[in-house]
Design a protein around this nucleic acid. Structure first.
Length: 557
DNA sequence: TATGACTGCCC
DNA sequence: ATTCTGC
DNA sequence: GCAGAATGGGCAGTCATA
């Protein structure tokens, strides 16, 4: 039975529940807080509350964004309170979180009567607004009229993360429990609809089973679990298993119905306009199709061959690619799965059955083509295929259980990925920064350098890394970095270059970001090298070599 | 008109 | 994207 | 084993400002 209280949809009530969630690390207790709260809400507020607990301000499939980040929030807060940058920085320093800074500065304001709907309307107003000045004024106005705890969560929602130990998967669980529906049904409906808010209402109404495939409305993607070695893959999958190359591109889902085609990204955004050659190639491929694959920059000579991700990146995010860009960086779509055919979902069919459907389509040209695959049994098979994939310019391998269903959202072990770090570098830390959130009080983010050459000890920054070390190691290093700090600029410390780290990464790319002229993709820390001196670290020549840049002597001018 | 800060979204 | 941590 | 937290590098688009 739904009990509706006066003011049940008040935002300050939502904030109280969020505090309750935040106050415990126990999942069951977090769920209980939501399960107590949800029934009291009318439908429209229930949808908003469910989205907000997932740190989502608009339905996922909704293209709107607030275009508000830390900078606009900061400016709005400064304008409202008249506080200096220094005082605001101090408040930020107490929490390491934008929302908690706002809550700190605007403490003691009485709760407002604003509803969840009112808050949602403010986000909508931000999405409609043009220019950062207008957005700052909207944020300022909202902060001015909200209570102390409400401003905290309003800001956290703007920042896109709550940091209360709750994410969308737990909200799905809470919806299932609240309305006594099977969790799998709730998850499935959410994967199909892409809006936990709508799903919460359907769960209450007992209408989840009515959720069907709606073509041109994106479905959640199936993800692969990373494994480090071929042996681990052999162990994780039944034998024989399927191997496909892992392309370094953009994951995309294509919906095709006759001449109509639409492309969606992993975040369920509509990216159709950016890839006209792929759209043209998919037209007329079939009726009621949903395809899963990778958009890649293709080699114009051998169109089955992918070019580096950096080439594709010039196409990424473009609203309307110019003819020049289309010619310079042609894109292809490598399709490896089929989720629907003739308007029927086939997620529960086996990989093999889905691939059979794919094969039955008449692929017309090479801007959209089927990914090839092979069968493997042993670790040696995997090793051989991995080497071949790398030779073909691809990132690594995806191994799949041929009998497995397509399970969106879950990083199960029926799809497993094998990548390999390019190499490791020994580097010295030149600067460190305080972290955010639970790392607010430690120095957790390290900028590091290599030596200019064997004879030139000049240090050239080449990257920044924050992960790979345990909390205990970070705590130890924090003390050490405090003791060798030479200068402070806000949260940043310059340190004496003494601490040597071994770092790893996927690739090295040319970059203007760091002094070395190169940057690392996916940098992470392997270990602290207390056995090494700063004079023993790697040099720029080594970085160049890893980047694949030829003869360094020719371009040192 | 050119440049750079900010934001979002790809990996 | 990757990695570590708490449950 | 899952879910959550913290955070790298780079490009396009938009707008404020020099």
């Amino acid at each position: 039975m739904t009990v509706q209280l006066a003011g049940a949809d008040a935002f300050h009530r939502w904030c109280t529940v969020a505090d309750e969630v935040r106050s415990t690390t126990k999942r069951l207790q977090k769920l209980a807080a939501l399960v107590d709260y949800f029934p009291s809400l009318p439908d429209d507020a229930l949808a908003i509350a469910a989205r907000f607990f997932s740190a989502i301000v608009f339905p996922r499939h909704d293209a709107r964004t607030t275009q508000v980040g830390g900078s606009i929030l900061w400016a709005a807060l400064a304008s409202l309170t008249g506080l200096s940058d220094e005082s605001l920085a101090e408040a930020y320093g107490r929490h390491g979180d934008a929302g908690d800074m706002v809550g700190d500065v605007l403490v003691d304001r009485p709760a407002s009567a604003h509803s969840l709907g009112w808050i949602e309307e403010r986000f909508a107003a931000l999405a409609r607004a043009t220019g950062s000045t207008a957005r700052r004024e909207i944020v300022r106005g909202a902060l001015a009229s909200l209570g102390g705890n409400e401003v905290r969560y309003f800001a956290k929602l703007l920042a896109g993360e709550l940091r209360i130990g709750l994410k969308e998967a737990q909200v799905e669980e809470a919806v299932a429990r609240t309305f006594e529906r099977p969790l799998e049904q709730v998850r499935h409906a959410n994967r199909l609809r892409g809006d936990i808010g709508e799903v919460a209402i359907l769960a209450r109404q007992g209408r989840l089973e009515l959720v069907r495939l709606a073509l041109f409305h994106p479905i959640g993607f199936m993800l692969a679990q990373p494994l480090a070695t071929p042996e681990a893959i052999v162990e994780a999958l039944p034998s024989p298993f399927v191997l496909e190359d892992k392309y370094d591109g953009i994951r995309a889902q294509a919906h095709v119905d006759g001449e109509e085609v639409r492309l969606f990204s992993r975040t369920l955004d509509d990216i159709t306009r950016g890839y006209p050659e792929v759209v043209a190639s998919l037209r007329g491929l079939g009726a009621g199709l949903v395809l899963d694959g990778e958009l890649i920059a293709v080699d114009p000579v051998d169109r089955r061959r992918a070019r580096p991700f950096a080439v594709l990146q010039r196409r990424l995010g473009r609203k309307a690619p110019t003819p020049a860009v289309l010619a310079e960086a042609p894109v292809g779509f490598v399709v490896y799965d089929l989720l629907a055919i003739d308007h029927e979902l086939v997620l529960d069919s086996s990989y093999e059955a889905r691939r059979a459907h794919l094969s039955s389509l008449s692929w017309r040209d090479d801007s959209a083509l089927m990914a090839s695959n092979t069968l493997a049994v042993t670790a040696h098979d995997v090793e051989t295929a991995f080497a071949r994939a790398r030779d073909a310019g691809n990132e690594g391998l995806i191994a799949k259980d041929p009998a497995s269903a397509y399970t969106p959202g879950r990083r199960g072990k029926s799809w497993v990925k094998l990548k390999r770090a390019l190499a490791t570098l020994d580097v010295v830390v030149t600067g460190v920064e305080r972290g955010h959130g639970r790392r607010n009080h430690v120095l957790s983010d390290y900028t590091f350098a290599v030596r200019a050459s064997e004879v030139d000890p000049t240090l050239l920054n080449v990257g920044k890394a924050y992960n790979g070390l345990t909390d205990a190691e970070i705590a130890t290093l924090t003390k050490r970095f405090e003791s060798i700090t030479t200068e402070r600029f806000g949260r940043f410390h310059t340190v004496r270059p003494e601490v040597v780290l071994e770092v790893t990464f996927d690739i090295v790319q040319r970059s203007t970001r760091h002094k070395a002229g190169y940057a690392l993709r996916f940098p992470r820390i392997v270990r602290v090298r207390d056995d090494k001196l700063p004079t023993e670290i790697d040099t720029l020549a080594r970085v160049r070599e890893l980047a694949g840049d030829s003869d360094p002597s020719t371009d040192d001018a």
